[in-house]
Nucleic acid binder design. Structure first.
Length: 188
DNA sequence: TGCACGATGAAC
DNA sequence: TTCATCGTGCAC
């Protein structure tokens, strides 16, 4: 029997090159326990945000109260409020101090997930994730990522990131990854 | 202390 | 294409 808590992604998974982590997060499970119910979604879309030099990354503003967690140890959550109403979920990556993270943009519902999960705001809402979870350890028991029961093969599409036109040349970098053909990708 | 602006989603 | 809605970062 498959229990996601017995297959958590280890700290070392996050403490790697951010682009590799973003790519490798596809197909992995995002698990969130709310009121004792384990909600599970399969990651089908993610974007890499490389650090202070990446003009699209929040860490490009430097260390501030909001971005401090991005500069912290890998394997923790960075959750922020966007447009005053939606929450977006990231996982901190790379070496501590690198200011890098991966934004989760879409999930395929697997278990106990109600509502749509295509888009970072929607998936955060469906999984019960908000700003109070920023800084949360992703090796905890109520909010973590895990290897799926079986590693199925899928094709990965790479593209520019969504909604970062303000980031000049960084807007065109191939830092968005998604599962080819998945109907749950936010913007095919 | 004030203000412009989002790593969005929904309505029109 | 327009708008809701508020925390954040930076100008004054």
């Amino acid at each position: 029997m498959y229990l996601p808590a017995q297959h958590k992604l280890p700290r070392e998974f996050y403490a790697r090159d951010t682009v590799a982590v973003a790519r490798d997060l596809l197909g992995k499970y995002l698990v969130r326990v709310v009121d004792g119910i384990e909600r599970i979604g399969r990651i089908v879309e993610a974007e890499a945000y490389l650090g202070p030099h990446d003009l699209a990354a929040h860490s490009s503003k430097g260390r501030t109260r909001r971005t401090e967690v991005m500069f912290g140890p890998p394997g923790h959550a960075y959750v922020y409020l966007i447009y005053g109403m939606h929450h977006c979920t990231n996982v901190v990556t790379g070496r501590e101090g690198s200011g890098s993270a991966v934004l989760l943009r879409a999930l395929e519902p697997v278990q106990n997930v109600a509502g749509r999960t295509s888009g970072c705001g929607l998936l955060s809402k469906a999984m019960g994730i908000d700003r109070s979870l920023t800084g949360h350890d992703l090796l905890s028991d109520d909010f973590f990522l895990a290897y799926p029961p079986a590693d199925e093969a899928f094709e990965v599409i790479v593209s520019r990131r969504v909604g970062v036109d303000y980031a000049r040349e960084w807007a065109d970098k191939p830092l968005r990854f998604y599962v080819a053909g998945s109907p749950f990708v936010s913007r095919p």
